[in-house]
Every structure is written in C-alpha cells, then in structure tokens.
C-alpha cells in the first residue's frame, strides 16, 4: 500500500468512527451495549447473500439490518421474552448462518473488516451517511437524553418514546452498516461501545461525553489506520486495540480523580 492510498481510507475511518462513537454514547446510556454485537452479526448473512448475487455488500447488510431493527423493536414492545435472550439466540445463529454461506475468500474480510478495499464512490457514500448519522443524533440528543433519564417524564412533555427509540435503532443499524467495512462483523460492537465507555469515565456533562466519545473514536481511527499501514496490519483490530488502550487510560484517570 502506498502512502497516498491511505488518505481516503483514513478520512472514511475517521468519519465512520465519529458517527459510531457518537451513537455509542447513547447506546451506553441506554444500556444497549449488546445491540451493536447483535446487529453486526445479523449483517453477516446479508453481506454473504449480496456477495453471492454480486451485489454491493453494503446493500445486503442494510436490508438485513433493517429487518433486524424492526424485529428488535417489536420484541421490546410486544413480547414477554427478554431482549437479551432473543438477541443471544437468534443473532448468534445469524452469524453462524452468515459464516456458512459466505464465500470463503470473503469471510476473513467480513469478520475483521478492510476499509482499504473501499472504492472512491463507496468512500464518498460512507462519509455522507456518517455525517447524516451525526446530524440525526445531534438533532435528537435532548430527546434521547430525556428518554434515558426517565421515559415517563419524556412522555409527559409529549415525546413519543417508541418512535424515538425506533429512529435510534435505525441509526444504530446505519452505524453498523457503515462500520462493518472498517472493523468487521466481529469487532463492530466495540467500535460503537469502547470510545463511548472511555468518554463516560472522564466526562461529567452530556456535551463533553458526546464530544469526548467522538474525539476518542476519531483519534483511534486515525492512528489505527496509520499504524496498520505502517506495519502492514489489518486496520480494524488495530483500531480496537488502540481504543482499548484509551479506555484503560481513562479508567486510570478516573481512579486518580476519585482517590
């Protein structure tokens, strides 16, 4: 890989990580850490089918994610079964199914991502959709925060919680579809959660939490792509390792403050 070839992936990774980490800050507050893993697993069979039928894998992922989001939403409101149980059973099964039908030479890339394989058009679409995701979360952040603090209070001033949660799940699906090319289906949940978890360790206000999460995600993405290029590694796992180092640092800062 030549040095100029990493510029586009680097830009895409920074935007995708910004969107996913910002979304992650609310996923953490709503205790929905598991949903990221679940959705990335659901995307697997979609990607596999798209590859088999020579379609863009992004489209396959989006279709399957959309179906999964409707499923999750219905389960949460209409079923007595615990969301954790459903997610644990069916979404892992879809990972297994995806792994079985996935063309073998695409399997590793789908599991661990490879952002350097994106075309220019795909890169542009990824950046635009990431910006859309960021705009949606910023536009809804007050309502999302109030919904997290107390659904009753939110509803009492006219916020429609169910609709809001559906939009949030759709945003979640979009973040997963975007991020899966970067870090892969196995690590996608971490792209959403680790930067936000790190920011929560050090942030006291909502705004610093949201911006901190984005900053950690963007920093880890940029350094991740750079380190991966320098040492010829897969970017996704490098991103996760760097994010984890940031997380450990924030824990130490928190301990130090509380001491």
């Amino acid at each position: 890989m030549q040095a100029t070839h990493i510029i586009l992936p680097l830009i895409v990774a920074v935007f995708v990580a910004a969107g996913a980490s910002l979304l992650g800050s609310f996923a953490i507050l709503k205790r929905m850490s598991l949903v990221g893993d679940a959705l990335s697993h659901v995307a697997m069979p979609g990607i596999a089918l798209a590859l088999i039928f020579k379609l863009n894998p992004f489209i396959g992922a989006v279709v399957f994610l959309f179906i999964a989001v409707i499923g999750i939403w219905i389960i949460e409101y209409r079923s007595a079964l615990s969301l954790d149980t459903i997610v644990g059973v069916f979404f892992t099964a879809s990972l297994a199914l995806g792994a079985l039908i996935m063309p073998e030479h695409d399997l590793i890339e789908t599991l661990f991502g490879n952002i350097t394989s994106l075309s220019v058009a795909e890169s542009v679409v990824s950046i635009v959709l990431s910006l859309t995701l960021i705009a949606v979360i910023f536009a809804l952040h007050r309502k999302l925060a109030l919904n997290m603090v107390s659904q009753d209070i939110a509803q009492s001033i006219g916020i429609r919680n169910k609709r809001l949660e559906f939009i949030f799940l759709l945003s979640f699906a979009l973040a997963v579809a975007l991020g899966i090319r970067f870090v892969g289906a196995l690590l996608m949940g971490s792209l959403v959660i680790i930067p936000a978890a790190s920011a929560k360790n050090v942030a006291r206000s909502l705004m610093s939490f949201m911006l901190g999460s984005m900053a950690f995600g963007m920093f880890a993405a940029a350094t991740g792509i750079f380190v991966a290029y320098r040492y010829a590694l897969t970017p996704g796992p490098v991103f996760i390792i760097i994010s984890t180092l940031i997380f450990i640092t924030t824990i130490m800062i928190r301990q130090f403050r509380e001491a």
Binding site: L29, R142, K143, A145, L146, M148, V149, S150, D152, I153, S156, A199, K200, A203, R204, S205, L206, M207, S208, F209
Partner: peptide, 22 residues
Amino acid sequence: YVPQRMDIETDVPLTVREFFGL
C-alpha cells in the same frame, strides 16, 4: 409530572443545568 424515581446511575454524564436544558 414528578415521577417516584429515576433509573439513573450515579455517574450519569449529565449536569443539572443540562437536565434543565433538555
């Protein structure tokens, strides 16, 4: 409406000022 309780963690990153802003 003032509910009986809220399900929030002690380290929730939200200041009282921001809560009013919501």
